[in-house]
Design a protein around this nucleic acid. Structure first.
Lengths: 152, 152
DNA sequence: ATTTTTGGCAGATAAATATTCTGTGCAGGA
DNA sequence: TCCTGCACAGAATATTTATCTGCCAAAAAT
C-alpha cells in the first residue's frame, strides 16, 4: 500500500512527533522542505494520516484509573447491536469499544479517576444502557506500554 | 488539577485537532493569540500535554486486524515480570500492554495485517518470549470507537 | 488605605515556518 | 523522438509562532 521507503520513514517520524518542522524532517529524510511538504499533503489527502492530536497525560487530568469492561448483550439482534453501540459510543469515559469474538460481545476500555468513579460509571452510566446482559471488569494494575504508533 | 474552564476547552480542542492555529483557538476561546500561546506552553511544561502525534489509518498501512491477547505468566516473580515486560514492549505489533487483575496477568492489544499475520506473530514472536505460561486471544470483529481524547 | 507585586492579557514586532510559484530533470508512453 | 506527468529544488510570499512591551486588575504587603 505504502511502498515508498521515504514515506514510511516520514510516517514513523510524524507518528512519533507531529510537531517536527518540515525543515527537520527534510534533514532526516535527505529531501527539500518542499518535497516533504508535498509528501505530507499527499498522505493526508490519501487518508493515510487521519488526524493530528495532542495526547494528554491521564494522571494530570484525573483519569488514570483504567479498566477493561467485557460485555455480553442479552440478544444479538441488529437493533440491539446498533442501539447499544450508538449509546456506548457517546460515553466520554469509554475511550475504546470493540465488537469481539469469544465469550463476550464487546470489550470497552474505560478511563476514570479511581475505583469509586468506576463504580459510579458502572452504576449510573453503563448498566443503564439497554440490551446489556452481563458484564465483567478487568482492572489495570499498571500500563506497561501505550502507543498510537503503527510501525510501517 | 486543571480547574480553569478555558484550559479545559483548550485541551479538548487540541486533543481533537492539534493542527488548529493559535488564531483559530483564540477565536473559539475569546482570547488573544498571545494568551492562547502562553496557556499552551504552560500545559506543555506542566506535562498535561505529553506529546503531539499524527494518527495513521490502520487499513491504509495493512494493520487493520486487531486482537487482544491475554497472557498468564508461568510464575509471577519480579524477574519474570520485568523480563517479560521489557521484551514485549519492544514488539511493534503490540500497541498496548497492561498489567491487569483477574485470571490473566496481561492484556495486549495487537495490530497486524490479517489472521495469518497474527498466527505468525504468535508463533514466531510472542510465544518465543520467556516466562509465558498460557495465552488466550480475542479477535476484533469491528472497532466501534477508538479515541485518544480524555474529556476534561 | 495605600503601595507593591504578581499574573494574565493585548497589541506590536521579529523570527521561523508553511505554502505557493516557477522551472528543471527524469522516467514512461505514444 | 517527442510528449506528458511526476517528484523535486529553490525562490518568493503568506501565515504562524515566538518574543517583547506595557497595561490592568486582583492579591499581598506595608
Amino acid at each position: 500500500m505504502i511502498s515508498d521507503p521515504t514515506d514510511k520513514k516520514l510516517l514513523a517520524l510524524l507518528q512519533e512527533n507531529s510537531k517536527k518542522t518540515n525543515k527537520e524532517l527534510a534533514g532526516k529524510l535527505g529531501l527539500s522542505v518542499t518535497a516533504v511538504y508535498e509528501r505530507i499533503r499527499k498522505l493526508e489527502r490519501a487518508g493515510v494520516i487521519s488526524k493530528y492530536v495532542a495526547l494528554v497525560r491521564p494522571e494530570k487530568v484525573e483519569r488514570s484509573f483504567t479498566a477493561f469492561c467485557h460485555i455480553k448483550l442479552v440478544q444479538h439482534t441488529k437493533g440491539n447491536v446498533t442501539g447499544f453501540e450508538s449509546q456506548v459510543t457517546k460515553l466520554p469515559e469509554v475511550l475504546e469499544v470493540f465488537h469481539v469474538s469469544g465469550e463476550y460481545d464487546y470489550i470497552l476500555k474505560v478511563m476514570v479517576k479511581d475505583m469509586e468513579a468506576y463504580r459510579e460509571f458502572m452504576l449510573n452510566k453503563l448498566t443503564t444502557l439497554q440490551h446489556i446482559g452481563s458484564t465483567q471488569s478487568t482492572f489495570v494494575i499498571s500500563p506497561v506500554k501505550n502507543t498510537t504508533e503503527l510501525s510501517v
